[in-house]
């Protein structure tokens, strides 16, 4: 039998899926053990048990000075920035994408502009944002927005253009105005694509968020990681990294099931 026709059973799929995770964990545990055997004070690869202890301390013990549990405060601050940034971007992306995709006049005016703008490296203008908006929340949200909005606009306008022309013609023969066509045909048809595009842009959004938090902030997941780097606190860093990964994964999962639930007609390509 050819390899392309051999499929793992259900049980084998589960085992295979967990395999790389287990392999990475074992490799880390072995490496950590080897280093700790040579030097018990080693900070680079703390033992998994030490990380677990740190994690429990981080999520339960309040900060002595402020009385807050910093882990949750960081999480809340970061998620708020991320949510605001991604939400604003999605809204701009949707509106601009619809306008560019539907209206030839808007397309002629802005599609070239958006293509050029999307080439500006967002991190390169981070200093400008700090100068203009100060070091507060606005500049961090703005970096996320600037970082992912051009992608969202381009992707969504492309998706609108990919809607079969037949549907627009059909809507016109039913007497629909431009407004009705955008509200009742184009908008619902690109909504699953919007969620898909947001899911794809979550990776870059985290990147920009952590970058801006690393440079100037008082809380946030990225801030904490870069703060404890000074003390070589690998156990804290790894806890935060695992937590960020888990958050990103859960966000992705939530968006996917939201799309399935809201747009059952979209089928597999809407995921």
């Amino acid at each position: 039998m050819r390899w392309i026709n051999r499929k793992p059973s259900r049980a084998a799929t589960v085992v295979l899926m967990t395999l790389p995770f287990v392999a990475v964990f074992i490799a880390y545990a072995l490496g950590s053990e080897a280093r700790l055997a040579v030097n018990p004070q080693d900070k680079l690869l703390p033992a998994p048990s030490a990380i677990a202890e740190t994690a429990i301390r981080l999520v339960t013990t309040p900060d002595k000075r402020s009385g807050d549990i910093l882990f949750w405060r960081d999480t809340f601050a970061s998620l708020q920035r991320l949510g605001l940034g991604v939400g604003i971007s999605a809204l701009i992306g949707l509106l601009a994408g619809l306008a560019i995709g539907l209206l030839p006049y808007v397309r002629a005016t802005f599609s070239g502009f958006v293509s050029v703008m999307s080439m500006v490296p967002p991190l390169a203008i981070l200093p400008i944002l700090f100068i203009v908006f100060g070091l507060g929340e606005v500049s961090k949200v703005a970096l996320v927005v600037i970082g992912i909005t051009p992608f969202l606009i381009r992707d969504l306008s492309q998706r609108v253009l990919e809607i079969p022309q037949e549907l627009f013609v059909k809507a016109q023969t039913l007497g629909a105005s431009s407004l009705v066509i955008s509200l009742r045909v184009a908008l619902p048809l690109v909504m699953p694509r919007l969620i898909q595009a947001v899911r794809l842009s979550l990776g870059p959004a985290w990147l920009f968020l952590i970058a801006s938090e690393a440079i100037a902030s008082q809380d946030g997941l990225g801030y904490r990681i870069f703060l404890v780097r000074r003390y070589l606190a690998m156990d804290v860093i790894l806890t935060y990294v695992i937590w960020i990964t888990l958050l990103a994964f859960l966000l992705d999962l939530a968006l996917r099931s939201l799309s399935r639930k809201l747009f059952p007609w979209a089928g597999e390509d809407g995921l």
């Binding site: 809507a171 039913l174 007497g175 629909a176 105005s177 407004l179 009705v180 009742r184």
Partner: peptide, 9 residues
Amino acid sequence: ASAFQTTYG
């Protein structure tokens, strides 16, 4: 067919 003829669809 009838809804699309209204202002907002």
